[in-house]
Each structure stands twice: as structure tokens, then as C-alpha cells.
């Protein structure tokens, strides 16, 4: 326990199940982005997986939207310390996308429209842990929240859930993405408080 602030009681008196250490609940949906919001039309959007051998698998919006869709309800945790519980999303599992790709790579770099990148171990993308989502709470995903489509990796801090995602590069070695080069942790597990370097 740290320094006690006399007279400080705080708003949440109960332990909230599902809340990682150092996080607080928000009902709002804050927006954290490094620059302007890219405005990408569905008809210009495409998603590409590049393998470590140089192969490329590409999906247009039409192809992506006809893949098997999943509805997931998950908790999300931002490194700036807010968490939002029970958020509803619709999209395609990374298992579905990675199944059509031949690769033994253990690492990946997600790339976004606008130039954002974030690195994610492939093990954190497989086995029902990650999706490319295009709906939030039953509506098309708003541009400021990453629409038309974003990564959703809810078991890692939310900066790993790249907005405006356009592709995944499979890599033999780990390398830092955008925030990981600007002070944030390479992995980002909220339960282990992997926030900063």
C-alpha cells in the first residue's frame, strides 16, 4: 500500500470483478488516437495478411463481410486507466483469417490506415482471443473508434486493438510498433500491469 491521502475516499467502494489492477470503470467511451482520424470508405478498405515468406492474402470489404461473423461481449482496458465492461462487438475471428495462411511466425505487426502500427505475438491472436470488428453495440463502428474496422484484442491493453486496421505482417522476430516505440510496454497485459517500459 502506498501513501495514504487523508480525506480521500474515492467513488468505488466495492471491488469490481473483472477490473485489472490500477483501472477504473467508465460508462463513457473515451477516444485515444495519436493524430487525425483517417476517413476510410468501405469500398476502398482492404485487409492484407503478409507472411514471413513474403506471401500475401487479401480481403476486400465484400469478401471480409461474407466471412463467418462472431458476436462477442468483452471487457476492454485502456492503459490510461479506464476500463469498460461488457462491450459488444461483431466481426471476424483472427482464427478464421489466419486459417487461410501458411505461417509458423510467432510475432506480428498490425498496420493501420494513417500509419499506426502495433506489435502482437501470434499466440495472442489465435484461439478465440482476437477479432477484426466492424460493429460496436449493434451499429457500424464510428471512424473515431476505428471504423470501418479495427482489431479487437481485449485481453491486452486497448492500444493493441489497432483502429483503422489494414493488415497484419507475420514476423519471425518481435519489434516495437508505434506506442511501443514511444514509452509503452512491448506486450501490454493489463492483469500484469504491463503499461510502460
Amino acid at each position: 500500500m502506498g501513501i495514504i491521502s487523508p480525506g480521500f475516499f474515492g467513488r468505488r467502494r466495492r471491488d469490481v470483478p473483472g477490473l485489472p489492477p490500477g483501472q477504473h470503470l467508465t460508462e463513457d467511451f473515451p477516444v485515444l488516437s495519436a493524430g487525425p482520424t483517417p476517413r476510410i470508405r468501405e469500398d476502398e478498405w482492404e485487409f492484407t495478411i503478409r507472411t514471413e515468406a513474403g506471401g500475401a492474402h487479401r480481403w476486400s470489404w465484400e469478401e471480409f463481410i461474407t466471412l463467418p461473423q462472431e458476436d462477442v461481449t468483452v471487457d476492454i482496458h485502456c492503459v490510461t486507466s479506464w476500463s469498460k465492461l461488457g462491450t459488444g462487438w461483431r466481426g471476424v475471428s483472427l482464427d478464421t483469417l489466419l486459417d487461410s495462411v501458411e505461417s509458423t511466425a510467432e510475432y506480428s505487426m498490425a498496420h493501420s490506415y494513417g500509419g499506426y502500427t502495433t506489435n502482437v505475438p501470434v499466440a495472442d491472436l489465435r484461439d478465440g482471443k482476437a477479432w477484426i470488428v466492424h460493429q460496436f453495440d449493434g451499429s457500424a463502428l464510428a471512424a473515431e473508434h476505428g471504423g470501418p474496422a479495427r482489431l479487437l484484442i481485449p485481453h491486452l491493453y486497448f492500444w493493441k486493438s489497432a483502429k483503422w486496421v489494414r493488415g497484419l505482417e507475420l514476423l519471425r522476430h518481435d519489434a516495437p510498433g508505434f506506442w511501443e516505440s514511444n514509452g509503452y510496454h512491448l506486450h501490454g497485459d493489463p492483469w500484469r500491469e504491463e503499461r510502460y517500459w
Binding site: 463513457d28 467511451f29 473515451p30 477516444v31 485515444l32 488516437s33 495519436a34 493524430g35 487525425p36 482520424t37 483517417p38 476517413r39 494513417g114 500509419g115 464510428a142 473515431e144
Partner: peptide
């Protein structure tokens, strides 16, 4: 940020820090 981009500023010259939700 949208207006700056429309006015011709390059998105990669604009750094932004936001707080709160859209509302």
C-alpha cells in the same frame, strides 16, 4: 483535426491528444 486535414495540412504533421468520449 478534420478541418486541418481538409485545409491541406498533412495528417502526419498533426499530433493530437484527446480526452473523454465524443459526447
Amino acid at each position: 483535426a478534420d478541418r486541418l486535414v481538409q485545409a491541406g495540412h498533412s495528417p502526419d504533421r498533426i499530433r493530437a491528444e484527446r480526452y473523454g468520449g465524443m459526447d
